[in-house]
Each structure stands twice: as C-alpha cells, then as structure tokens.
C-alpha cells in the first residue's frame, strides 16, 4: 500500500512542475531505495507528465531502479585507472564471494553489487565504495576483511 504522506513530503519540496521530475524521482530513490510502481504513477499524475515519459526517465538513468536494492550498496569502480589496476578482478572476486552477479542483489537482500564508470579517486585505484565509505588500493585478498563489518552489521539488525 502506498504511503501517501511520505510521498507528499517529497513532492512538496518542489514546484510541482514537469521539470521537477528528476529531482523528485531522485528523492524517492534515495528514500525508498528504488522507485515503487504506485509512487511513480502518483508522480506522473501530480506533475501532469505522461507515465511513458516517467518510465523513459526512470530507465534511462543508471541511478534509478524499479526493483528494491540490498541493504548495502557495493560499487566497484571501473574507471580507466581502476581498469588498468585490476578493478575487473575485484568485481569478479566480490561477485564470486557474495554469490551474486554484477547488477544484482544477494538472495538475503544484504548486498547489491554494481560497477560504475569512475568514482573520482583514481590515485588510489582500484577503488570501491560500500554505501558512503570509500576504500582505496583494494587488492583481492583484502575483500573478506572489508566486507566483514557490513556483514556483521547486517546480522545484528533484526
């Protein structure tokens, strides 16, 4: 069931014009972790933007997802420097260790794994982020240790 008040809080931050579509979708993505169907339909109605256009925006930009993401977002940088310094191997290692393909979420819903174009910390390549934390010079053997605190945090939350 859609939480109308929660959505209203987001929409009320803006003018309610068609050009507010992207910031509103961003806020929904940030708040819900994805773009729920009913909310997206409600935004289309409120901004008087065709649902097809909302859908095209929601699927064009990489930031948006139409399915829920995991509790922790892992982003492996595949920028040029990270590519040269083994970013792909790092992504492979995380993928096999967590048992999840890039772009997907683990079965227990704890981790989403994705690769990104560049995180802008090229001097410390290869770089990855878990949620808002940056990790630099990540060699494959460091992966278990980096994941541990997030796994523990995941276990302790009900």
């Amino acid at each position: 069931m859609m939480d109308a008040a929660r959505l209203e809080t987001i929409i009320s931050r803006y003018d309610g014009e068609p050009y507010d579509l992207i910031p509103i979708l961003q806020d929904i993505q940030d708040s819900y972790g994805f773009l729920p169907k009913e909310e997206v339909k409600a935004v289309a109605r409120r901004l008087k933007v065709p649902l097809t256009q909302v859908y095209s925006v929601a699927t064009f930009y990489k930031m948006f997802t139409l399915v829920p993401k995991g509790r922790h977002q892992i982003r492996v940088c595949l920028g040029t420097t990270c590519h040269l310094k083994g970013g792909q191997r790092l992504a492979d290692s995380l993928s096999s260790r967590l048992g999840v393909k890039v772009g997907h979420t683990t079965a227990d819903g704890q981790f989403s794994l994705e690769t990104v174009g560049c995180l802008g910390s090229c001097a410390q390549a290869p770089v990855m982020m878990i949620d808002d934390h940056y990790f630099g010079r990540v060699t494959v053997d460091k992966v278990p240790k980096l994941l541990k605190p997030f796994q523990q945090a995941a276990d302790s939350t009900p």
């Binding site: 595949l78 920028g79 420097t81 990270c82 174009g117 560049c118 802008g120 090229c122």
Partner: peptide, 11 residues
Amino acid sequence: DEGDPGAFMDR
C-alpha cells in the same frame, strides 16, 4: 558532470 573516467579535477 565530470564523467570522464580517470578525471577528478572538478570534484
């Protein structure tokens, strides 16, 4: 929108 991989001047 500094998207070039390998660039972080603007950041």
